[in-house]
Amino acid sequence: MTEPFLSITGLSAVSDRENGAPILRDVSLRLERGEVRGLVGESGAGKSTIAKALLGILPRTVRVTGGAIRFEGQDLLTLKPKQLSDIMGSEISLIPQDPQTALNPGRRVESQLTDGLRMRRGLSRQAAHDKALKLLEEVHIRDPERVLKAYPHELSGGMRQRVLIAAAFALEPKLVVADEPTTALDVTVQKQILRLIRGMQKTHGTGMIFVTHDLGVVAQICDTVTLLYAGKVIEAGPTAQVLATPKHAYTKALLAAGPRYDRPTAGLEPVPQAIFDQLRAEMGIM
């Protein structure tokens, strides 16, 4: 069997702040080229820790205690900072969660969108400008010239997220990490953005790790899904299969509890306490 495009094997991490409490316990997952994998769990389940590990931006308080992240044959965890920073933003990019804070309020959209093109790809000012226009058209922004000249506060939340998506795909990365990219948006905008991300991913043939707490979103966009609870993989497989015939009681409870399209921002309805007790017992946590 050939080595997959991206594989995480046996990844474990602890928090130095909370006396070495485990954050990730022996997490493994794999991703093929052009595949979208959902990473689902409630807050604290470890999904964003995995995303941060992929991007090489783990906080100082988190310490990896074992495992490997292999991306195109290289272990990201053992790379030197210089090599890592060459990959990040170029081969692997991020669609951030909150478009309010992810754009620098003091710089025009153009300079933020073309930074990477000019620094990483050595494009001239004019070439970067043309490329930025194309990217904005690609994310369905009307009047891209005006948007390029705008400051972030002059754009709506949805527009900003489109700009950030354009930026994430600007350097033709092989892997995009989407960190709950729709949670901060209005319901109506959410759907458009999801469709846009899916479309971009397909046209560019990019692999994607899609972090979310919303199984409804997973159903719309992910090929495969990995469910996490308390830093441990509970269930994984093709989305259709997991959603149709969930094996684990926690997954079943999640599906039964929601989510609802009429109240997507409300998050998940409570899962019965008994299931949590069972989960804890399985993992040996009290």
Binding site: M88, G89, Q97, T101, N104, R120
Partner: peptide, 23 residues
């Protein structure tokens, strides 16, 4: 977050300060 994104673009700490944070 915009600093994080700029960092992912490969900017050094000095550049992050001078080009992103200072303004």
């Amino acid at each position: 977050d915009y600093i994080l994104l700029a960092k992912l673009k490969g900017k050094s700490n000095l550049r992050l300060i001078m080009q992103e944070a200072l303004r």
